[in-house]
Nucleic acid binder design. Structure first.
Lengths: 240, 240
DNA sequence: ACCTGAACACCGTTCAAGT
DNA sequence: ACCTGAACACCGTTCAAGT
C-alpha cells in the first residue's frame, strides 16, 4: 500500500518514456466544489453581475459548457453559492432562556458571511434557498424559536422574515461597498443632487439634508436596530 | 391660426400628390413616455427578466439603438419605470393626529402600484431611486413624519426602511405570482421536498410542516403585520 | 464519463451613415 | 435631430463529436 501512487506524485518529474508527457498539462479536475470556489472568487473580485458561466470557465481553464456536467445551470449554481456560505454560519443548540440573543447571533453570522462576499446576497433574493446546509440551519433555527416558546405559526413567519431582512440589508451593503470602490464620490454626488433641489418645492428634504447626507448611525447600527425591532415584534406575537 | 395644421390632421387622408405618400407608414414618434409604456407592457406580460432594449425596440417598431437618443441606458430606464409608478401613489397632506395611518396608506399604495406590474419592484432593489416623482413623494412623506413629531434622525431612517420593506415584499409577491402562472405546482413540489426530508435529521422542520405548507395568513396579512411592526418600531424611536 | 468546439438565440451599447 | 444597420463584446444553454 505504501508504494501506491498518491496525489503527491504530481510533484515528481515524469520519466521520459511516460505517455503522460504527450498529454496536455494536468489540470485539477472540475468538481462542484471547484466551481463554487471559482464563482465565489469572481463575486468577491468583480461582483455578482460579473458572474457568468463563461467567466467561471476561464477561471477553471475549461469551456463554459463543461460546467453543465456538474451543475444543471446558473440558477442551481446560485443556490449552491448561497448554501455554501450558509454552511459557514453556526447555529447553537437551543437555550430557552436566551432564544432572542441566540437567533440574533445567527442572523449576525449570516450577515457576516454574506457581506464577506460582496453583493452575493442578491443571489438569494429571487429564489427560495433549499440546499442541505440551508435546511439544516433552518431546522436548528426552528429549534431555537420553539424552545423560546413561540407558537408554530409565529416560528414559520419568523424563519421567513428574519433571513429576508438579513439578505436585503447585506445586498444593499454589498452594492454600496462595491459602488464606493469604483466611484468614491457616489454619495457626494447624491447629496449634491438632494441639496440642489429647489427649496420651495422640496422644503422637507431640505430640512432633513444633514441627516440624509451624514446619517449618524453606521450600517451596523441600522442592522442591529432593525434586527432588534423584528425580534421584539416576533416575541410580541407569542403573547398576543 | 385656425387653419394651421394640427396633430388631428393625421386622421385625414393624404391628397394623391402629397410627398408623404412615398414615405413609410407614419409611426408614432418615440418619446420617453412611449418607451416607459412599452417597457411596462413587457414587464406586465413577461416579467422584469424579459425586459431588454431590443424587446422594447420591436415593441415600438424601431431599433434598440434608437432608444439611446431618449434614454441614457438601461439603468436610467429602470429608474424611469420606478419613478413612473411612484407618480401614481397618492401622498396626503399631513394630519398630525393620523401620521401612522397616513404613512401606512402611502406604503399600501406603493405596494399596490408595484404588484400591479408583476416583479417590477426588483428594478429598485439595486439602485437608489432619484426621479422627480420619487423626490416629491419623499418630500411629502417626510412632511407626514415630521408632523407626527418624529425627530429628524428617525425620519431619515423611516423613509429608507419603509420603502425598502415595501419593495422586497412586492418583489417576492410578484416573483411568486409569475412562478405560479408558469408552474402552478411550484409550491406543491416545494412542500413535497420539505416533507421528504428525513424526520430524524430535520425533526423541527417536520414539526412545522403544516405551517410551512399552508401558512394561515395571506400575503396581505403578512405585509400588514410587517408594516405595523415597522411603524410601531419607528414610533417607539421617537419617545426613546 | 467528462470535456471540447461550434452553434443558437439572445444581451447592452457604440457609432458611422443616412434622412 | 432622430433613426438605421452593422458591429463589438458579451450572455446561458445545447449538442454532436472526440477521448
Amino acid at each position: 500500500m505504501v508504494f501506491m501512487s498518491t496525489s503527491s506524485d504530481r510533484d515528481l518529474p515524469q520519466p521520459p518514456w511516460s505517455s503522460l508527457r504527450e498529454r496536455p498539462p494536468a489540470r485539477p479536475p472540475i468538481t462542484r466544489e471547484s466551481i463554487v470556489d471559482a464563482a465565489l472568487r469572481i463575486v468577491d473580485a468583480e461582483g455578482l453581475d460579473a458572474l457568468s458561466m463563461r467567466h467561471i470557465g476561464t477561471e477553471l481553464h475549461c469551456q463554459a459548457s463543461a460546467l453543465y456536467a456538474h451543475v444543471s445551470g446558473k440558477p442551481e449554481l446560485l443556490q449552491l453559492l448561497i448554501d455554501h456560505v450558509v454552511g459557514e454560519v453556526e447555529v447553537p443548540d437551543p437555550d430557552p432562556e436566551r432564544w432572542q440573543e441566540q437567533i440574533k447571533d445567527v442572523m449576525r453570522g449570516y450577515r457576516a458571511v454574506l457581506i464577506a462576499h460582496g453583493d452575493l446576497a442578491g443571489a438569494s433574493l429571487a429564489n427560495i434557498p433549499t440546499g442541505h446546509n440551508t435546511m439544516l440551519a433552518t431546522d436548528r433555527m426552528i429549534a431555537i424559536l420553539l424552545a423560546g416558546g413561540l407558537p408554530n405559526e409565529v416560528v414559520a413567519y419568523a424563519i421567513d422574515v428574519l433571513p429576508q431582512f438579513v439578505t436585503v440589508s447585506s445586498y444593499e451593503y454589498g452594492l454600496f461597498a462595491r459602488r464606493l470602490q469604483t466611484d468614491p464620490e457616489y454619495f457626494d454626488r447624491l447629496n449634491e443632487y438632494f441639496a440642489s433641489l429647489p427649496a420651495e418645492r422640496f422644503p422637507n428634504i431640505h430640512r432633513l439634508l444633514p441627516q440624509l447626507a451624514a446619517p449618524d448611525d453606521s450600517p451596523e447600527q441600522r442592522f442591529e436596530f432593525g434586527l432588534d425591532m423584528l425580534v421584539r415584534g416576533i416575541a410580541a406575537m407569542a403573547v398576543a
